[in-house]
Design a protein around this nucleic acid. Structure first.
Lengths: 192, 192
DNA sequence: CCTACCGATCGGTAGG
DNA sequence: CCTACCGATCGGTAGG
């Protein structure tokens, strides 16, 4: 037997992160309402109620996961475009990066999907606010493009983003690589 | 007082359709899990349990709405393309038609959205099967296009469909007409 | 981290 | 169409 009893509160520093990762995976697979605290507990090897030692509420847990996911995604995208100057190159790099994130199976990043209708209203407002900031990156990228006058930049940006975010709805891993999809999206959206 | 008591079973022929329309609206707004039988009953002016005189189960209700919505959508699209011969014209007509359906607020047609993750597995299989048939229409339309070799028709079709189906996620009525969106989508997706 | 529980809500049913 | 209920499940909590 170790110093601490096996059944006592586990305060190992990685424990909380472990639980967050499990929760993110379940939210990504089954949605907000489709994932119960007891489901998360089961994957973590504890009862649902025990999770409240590590988190405040299901709502707060989801918001934290969503915001952390967008922080990471935004960071990766900013890094990916930093080394490029041509507007089309920059857009292509951002698309490939976001698509890679959205198509990674059960990634910690996926919960940002458009679950928004499923979520309590108070939570939804927080998610929307964070997402709007995220989309600002793409607003700048699109506004820098030399688009033909027949294309409205605002609609173009919304179409492109919903395209990238909803790709996981039909993409099935294995058949083709995510880089292939990104290349096709950029080919289609490239107009001068 | 009329012959029938007000509180007795209402067998007016339009009643069932009325309930279906209410259910469709709620499913479209709040999703499958977010809509309870009691919610539907409340809008219909009865208790949740009373709905079971008209329907067999929540699952069956959702499947019926989804399939009827796709039947109607498919019919409208087939009619819209029937009068055109040019492949691009046909695709454009189909896109405008589907987008019009998907953007109609609270339309009976909206529940076909990609709620699929929210729904019980047995139900999901039925929905996917019906949706696959629906998408066959677009498969034919896309395969008839003279696309450049750099574009994969299968990816192109999936991208186009997810674009049309997810437009409701960001579109807000009033700011611009749905016809405007359709025109932009076709402009972007038109490559020769 | 568990036991044991709370009040709320869910889909659905029997019987009238 | 209602009353009155069923068993199941939910998020969350007190106390240890």
């Amino acid at each position: 037997m170790t110093k601490k009893d096996v059944a006592s509160a586990d305060e190992r520093p990685g424990r909380r992160h472990q639980i967050l990762a499990i929760a993110a995976q379940l939210f990504a697979r089954k949605g907000y309402r489709g994932t119960s605290m007891r489901d998360i507990g089961e994957q973590a090897g504890v009862l649902g109620g025990s999770l409240y030692h590590h988190i405040k509420s299901k709502d707060a847990l989801f918001v934290e996961l969503h915001d952390a996911a967008l922080d990471e995604a935004q960071g990766r995208i900013v890094a990916a475009i930093a080394t490029r100057a041509d507007p089309w190159d920059r857009l292509e790099a951002a698309c490939a990066c976001l698509l890679d994130i959205q198509l990674a199976p059960d990634s910690l990043t996926l919960p940002m999907m458009n679950d928004f209708r499923e979520v309590p209203e108070a939570v939804r407002e927080l998610l929307v606010a964070r997402r709007d900031r995220f989309e600002g990156v793409f607003r700048e990228l699109v506004d820098a493009l030399p688009l033909p006058e027949s294309i409205d930049p605002s609609i173009y940006r919304n179409l492109l983003l919903s395209q990238l975010n909803s790709a996981a709805d039909w993409y099935r891993p294995g058949r083709l690589e995510s880089g292939m999809i990104a290349a096709q999206i950029v080919t289609i959206f490239r107009h001068e």
